[in-house]
Design a protein around this nucleic acid. Structure first.
Lengths: 229, 229
DNA sequence: ACCCCTTCGTGTCCAAACAACACCAAGGCT
DNA sequence: AGCCTTGGTGTTGTTTGGACACGAAGGGGT
């Protein structure tokens, strides 16, 4: 029997919630839709899954097609499939969230995006479909992940100061942290490599630069180490 | 333009990883498939999403249709959609995981299940599709959830002893816990109501019964309380 | 009636982790 | 030279976490 075909098939899409940091403010990358439904509305970059790609590949591809942002750290968030979430038809979307170093990427609108922009994560414009809900979930997930996985570094340049990484945590968690306690705890994880360099071109004492040591991190994880801040 | 129809549509299914407890051993509810592909193989209960139901509803429905197990605590786990995970066709599945009080349910095979059975979570038979991978992820998620959300009670009768709930934690986490420390920590959360009753019909000193106080839990959460064991 | 066996229920101490807290140093700018 | 900004550093008191042992209760068996 053609069991496979007995059911009306929903369309399947992927959507990406991409976070970036800007002046210590957490922002989300959005596109302005060029087509109905919701033409002119801001929305998450995303689109239909093609036949021969994985879900994660589809997310990367759609993100790049619509915004020019490529090679991003992406992780699956959740799927949304309420009937009626898309007025056209039954559409089930698999949402991903990701983090980028904003300066490494210059988003440009393409594909069916009329424009691209960064918006404060806590104050997005009204979004198309149920994308507002997806962004809200992504923020909560990010907050939880940040404390248990070394993902905060993805928002910073490869070399960063301790003050910068503290800024990341404060921006995402939304509360100030104690400088001394934060440094002690983060350095105690042993996954930061202290560099010989310091900042350049700042109008005050230059801070030491650090780098996340992914190799060391993986080695420690293998031995049961659990990152936590 | 019929943008909606430009893409070959994958089929969308839901699958359920239902955990239950049995003699302090964590088990998973599986069905034996009656049809190709993988006829005769054990697999997760699940099936195609219908047009007018949410994903969560589809999960509950399929679970009940195939195993008779109804009204289960279910939570979305993740989606799996690699091309080739189903030999028939492109199939994307949204996986859910859930917890049941085993004594409240007497599974019976139905629909396209030839048989139903409970298997130790750490020693399942070879499973159809990528279901082994899904079970593995569900176990990891359950371990994490158990420590941060009061979900362990879902595996026990409504009234339980402290030794029983400790057994739940030991079964899921896979390691023994100290009785006095565990009790101190769990009671300190303040979400257990101590009942006037004790166990009946045991051949030794009867233990006091407790009940999870969901109302109190929600009230505390609203005030920023974070359950943790 | 007595003993036995099993499970219940309880408190202390030490170690580690955490939170609060303030001042001098460096270095560009005017 | 002095100013202004940010960098970098330790101690202390409090809280939390983990190790650890024994008498009490109560049904079963003799």
């Amino acid at each position: 029997m053609s069991f496979t075909y007995r059911h009306a098939r929903p369309a399947v899409t992927v959507d990406c919630v991409v976070f970036g940091l800007d002046d210590e403010l957490l922002k989300v990358l959005l596109i302005q839709r060029d087509r109905e439904p919701f033409a002119g509305r801001w929305a998450l970059p995303g689109g239909f899954v093609e036949a021969e790609e994985t879900l994660a590949q589809a997310a990367q591809r759609e993100l790049t097609e619509e915004t020019g942002v490529a090679k991003v750290y992406l992780e699956q968030l959740a799927s949304f499939g309420d009937p009626g979430r898309d007025p056209r038809d039954r559409v089930i979307t698999v949402a991903y969230y990701g983090l980028v170093r904003r300066l490494d990427h210059a988003p440009r609108a393409a594909s069916d995006a009329r424009a691209v922009g960064w918006f404060p994560a806590s104050r997005c414009p009204p979004l198309a479909f149920d994308h507002g809900e997806i962004v809200a979930l992504a923020r909560r997930r990010l907050q939880a992940r940040l404390r248990e996985q070394p993902v905060g570094f993805e928002l910073l340049p490869r070399k960063f100061t301790l003050s910068q990484i503290q800024g990341v945590y404060e921006a995402v968690l939304g509360r100030p942290l104690d400088k001394r306690n934060f440094r002690r705890k983060l350095l105690a994880t042993g996954v930061l490599r202290e560099l010989a360099e310091t900042q350049l071109g700042v109008a005050h004492r230059a801070a030491r630069l650090y780098q996340f040591d992914a190799r060391e991190y993986r080695a420690r994880v293998k031995q049961g180490f659990h990152f936590e801040v």
